[in-house]
């Protein structure tokens, strides 16, 4: 079983999400991107162009899998068929790690295709801990879980979010994907101090960072991944780098996606805020 420490220490550099709109640029030019993150579900239940592209990308770049449908926090039974497919996909693309979100996506067998919040209670923590352990047993590797953007908080919480993350990681040994934009969005929506949040994160469990843009509405901020990263998030990212000593970093851009060169330039701004590019040839287990 892969050790979490190996993932935390493996700084892949600055990565990009593999998106269909960029396939032509990527397959035609093999740009100097440190690594790619795929949306796992886009490469499951399909045998056509997506997997054909993925095979070629995985031959040349490190690949990380990021899912949106594990539904880890649901009270429905664990979907073992989904996990089997996830595991097979990870083997196929030699995924460095597999991540998803601290959330639930549906109940009663339905999938709302949204990252719905969990209450940060003792009961929810126990529930999540048991499920993360089961998933890790099936996947035979530590699961990496992302702090979500949320637009409501359930009353009666026993923990703040960083406390919840600390308890969860201590009990399961799972990793964390620290989405800095989500921290900022939640801090603005719920009125907490984003810097204090970052100072309370269990950094020894953080495997990588996500950066993204969001949309500002009159009443709340919405995690839309359709804008450049805002100034405040870059500042928080710099703090997160200081606190963590640096981690693999990925820019998410999922709507109104600009051309590949613009997206890549935006990602590389992370270098100005304390991120490191990948040292060539330093990867363990790369196919090439």
């Amino acid at each position: 079983m892969t050790k979490l420490r190996d993932l935390v220490d493996q700084n892949l550099g600055i990565g990009l999400g593999l998106r269909t709109t960029h396939y032509e640029d990527i397959l035609g030019k093999w740009p100097a991107v440190d690594w790619f993150e795929i949306l796992s579900e886009n490469y499951m239940h399909t045998g056509g162009r997506p997997v054909h592209v993925l095979d070629q990308v995985a031959e040349r770049y490190p690949v990380v899998m990021h899912g949106v449908s594990m539904n880890i926090g649901t009270t429905d039974p664990i979907d073992r068929a989904y996990l089997s497919e996830l595991k097979a996909l990870a083997a196929r693309c030699n995924a460095r790690w597999i991540s998803d979100h601290i959330c639930w996506t549906g109940v009663n067998g339905q999938n709302l295709h949204d990252l719905l919040p969990l209450p940060y209670t003792e009961a929810a923590l126990r529930h999540l801990v048991a499920r993360v352990k089961q998933v890790q047993d099936v996947l035979e590797r530590p699961l990496v879980l992302e702090n979500p953007s949320t637009y409501l908080q359930f009353a009666g919480a026993d923990f703040t979010e960083p406390e919840f993350l600390r308890e969860l990681t201590a009990a399961t040994g799972c990793g964390l994907l620290m989405d800095v934009n989500n921290v900022f969005v939640c801090a603005e929506n719920h009125g907490f101090d984003a810097e204090a949040y970052l100072r309370a994160v269990p950094w020894d469990h953080v495997v990588y960072f996500h950066l993204a843009g969001h949309t500002v509405h009159a009443t709340h901020r919405l995690d839309t991944h359709d804008h450049p990263v805002c100034k405040e998030v870059w500042q928080l990212f710099a703090l997160a780098n200081r606190l963590s000593g640096g981690r693999s970093t990925l820019l998410e851009w999922d709507a109104n996606i600009p051309d590949f060169a613009t997206t890549h330039r935006e990602a590389k701004k992370a270098l100005r805020h304390g991120a490191r590019a990948r040292e060539r040839g330093a990867l363990v287990g790369a196919r090439r």
Partner: peptide, 25 residues
């Protein structure tokens, strides 16, 4: 007692962020 009150959004308003997003998506 169910959702932490938010000075800018009612309980229904907070839930509407999810409700509106579901159908749109």
């Amino acid at each position: 007692d169910v959702l932490v009150p938010n000075p800018r959004l009612s309980a229904a308003g907070m839930l509407d962020v999810y409700n509106g997003g579901y159908l749109m998506r």
